[in-house]
Each structure stands twice: as C-alpha cells, then as structure tokens.
Simulated scan of single mutants.
Amino acid sequence: MNEVIKAIYERRSVRDFTAEPVPREHIMEILKAGSWAPSGLNNQPWRFAIVTDPALKEKFEPLTKYTRIIKSAQCLLPVFISKSKMYHETKDHQAIGACLQNMLLCAHSLGLGAVWLGEILKSGDEVRKLLGLSEDLELMAVIALGWPKNRDQKSRRIPLEELIVFDN
C-alpha cells in the first residue's frame, strides 16, 4: 500500500495530547500542506491563525463544549475563509474542507495528533474578535494539535457497498 493511502486509512481524530510542545517547523509544515489544497481558480481562500500561548488558548475554552480538547492541545490552528477571496460559495467551502484534510494528514505524517473542531463555529465571531481579525474572515474550523497521549483510536466505516448509490 502506498504512503498516501496508508495515511488516509490510519489517520484518526486525536483528542488527548501530552504536554510536549509542537515544534514551530511542524506547525509551518502543516499550514503549508493546507495551502497546497486545490481551490477553484486557484483563489486559495484559506487564512490561518496559530495559537500556542497558554493564556490565549485558555480564552478559547468557553467558546466550545470541547473545553477538554482545547485544554489538552498544545496548539490551536483556527482556519478562516477570506470572504473577499471567494468567488463561489460552495466551491470555496469545499476547498476549505480539502485544506483541512491536507492539514490533518500532514499532522498525522509528522507523528502528531489532531482533531477538526467544528462545533466552535457557533462562536466564530468571538474567535475572530479574540484574535483581532477583520470581519472579512469567517471561521471554518479549529484544528487542535499536539503529541497524542495514546495511539489506539478506533474507527469503523459503513461498508462501501452501502455507500454506492449507482454503478454502471
């Protein structure tokens, strides 16, 4: 099995992290991987924030029901869409999904654990204001990142035969 397929099948959402800091080079590699996602007209509508300061990270805790994950993560990567860079809402939101998947796969390839937090979107304006960012940026997700406490996450999938709705 090639490395890309192996990474897709082995990557899991990690929600518990050690206290070991994430090297800046790893964070930058993850952001670079996100920036290489496909986007319509190559408009690259994603924008990133990096939150590693414990005091700032703590301010994210009341903005989500996943406080425990925020506390445990050594780095938060809020991902925004630049509304001024968008040209087609659906395509641009799909591009953000590809960006996030690239970031998660990159984190996995570096031995890190990560989870895509979407529930925090209900507090998107508060996140943007907390970071002092313009209204042009809309929160799409926060990736919580760190070294996994354990690597025994399990997952299951619906059988492929149940997912195929047409085959000719």
Rank of each mutant, 00 (worst) to 15 (best):
T52S: 11
D53K: 14
P54V: 07
A55R: 13
L56T: 09
L56W: 08
K57G: 10
K57C: 08
F60A: 07
E61A: 05
E61P: 00
P62H: 10
P62R: 12
T64F: 06
T64Y: 04
T67Y: 01
R68P: 04
I69Y: 11
K71P: 05
K71I: 01
A73Y: 10
Q74Y: 09
C75S: 04
C75N: 00
L77T: 07
P78H: 04
P78L: 03
I81Q: 01
K83Y: 01
S84E: 14
K85F: 02
M86F: 03
M86A: 09
Y87I: 15
Y87G: 15
H88P: 05
H88A: 11
H88W: 08
E89P: 02
T90A: 15
T90C: 00
K91R: 13
D92K: 01
D92W: 00
Q94G: 04
A95L: 01
A95F: 04
I96F: 09
I96V: 09
I96Y: 11
G97Y: 06
G97W: 01
C99H: 02
L100K: 01
L100C: 07
N102G: 06
L105Q: 02
C106G: 01
H108I: 14
H108V: 12
S109I: 01
L110M: 03
L110S: 02
L110I: 00
G111K: 02
A114L: 08
V115Q: 02
W116K: 07
L117A: 09
L117M: 14
G118A: 15
E119T: 12
I120T: 09
L121Y: 08
L121W: 04
K122H: 11
G124Y: 07
D125E: 15
D125M: 12
E126V: 10
E126T: 12
V127Q: 10
V127M: 09
K129Q: 15
G132W: 14
L133A: 09
L133E: 09
S134L: 02
S134I: 02
D136C: 13
L137Y: 15
E138V: 14
E138Y: 07
L139S: 08
L139H: 12
M140Y: 04
M140P: 02
A141W: 00
V142R: 15
I143F: 06
A144M: 02
A144Q: 00
A144D: 01
A144K: 01
A144W: 05
A144S: 12
L145K: 10
L145E: 04
G146H: 05
G146K: 07
P148F: 02
K149R: 15
